[in-house]
């Protein structure tokens, strides 16, 4: 399989970079090559955050994802900025509790996930990102389920061990949508 290019984008504070780190670690746990590149600088301070993740069986050239196979958009500016860049046949996940706009492309697979609302309804504040990740796993099989669980063990620091079950719950909600 060639390189899978993933672009994750939203507001600062939605856990976009953590979502990317989880995806990257899951790739690593599957023994694949991975890169993770955050946006840094003014956009981090001014609202939007995005993060490129590449998962590949070969050495990865540019870690900067220009044309994603998978786009996760968690706010409207991100969706508008990147929707035309998604490769034909690609997958787009839209947090429809934040973005009420529909995507008008016919050549890509779009899933509307009310992640932020589901997180709030289930007592999982701040874990809309993990709901998106669960859905992303279900629709793209970008990694094995086991790898995602191992990634969780790597990414949640021991001092936040109480977050482990909540993250698992959020992932489950996403993967069952």
């Amino acid at each position: 399989m060639s390189t899978l290019n993933i672009l994750l984008a939203g507001f600062g504070g939605q856990g976009i970079l953590f979502l990317g780190k989880m995806a990257a670690y899951a790739g690593l746990m599957d023994n694949r090559q991975i890169t993770w590149l955050p946006s840094y600088g003014p956009e981090m301070r001014g609202g939007t955050a995005n993060c490129s993740v590449c998962i590949s069986d070969d050495l990865i050239g540019s870690p900067l994802v220009i044309n994603p196979d998978i786009l996760v958009a968690m706010n409207l500016p991100s969706l508008e900025k990147f929707i035309d860049k998604v490769v034909p046949g690609g997958t787009v996940l839209v947090d429809c509790s934040i973005i009420d706009k529909k995507v008008h492309r016919e050549d890509i697979n779009v899933f509307y996930v009310p992640a932020t609302r589901l997180a709030a309804d289930n007592g999982l504040p701040g874990l809309a990102n993990m709901i998106m990740l669960g859905k992303m796993l279900k629709e793209t099989k970008f990694c094995t389920e086991n790898a995602l669980e191992e990634a969780l063990l790597k990414c949640v620091p021991p001092r936040k061990a109480d977050m482990m079950e909540l993250n698992r719950k959020a992932l489950k909600i996403g993967s069952e949508l």
Partner: peptide, 10 residues
């Protein structure tokens, strides 16, 4: 450079 400094890789 900024790319290598900011990116994560195994």
């Amino acid at each position: 450079d900024g790319m290598l400094g900011q990116m994560m890789e195994p």
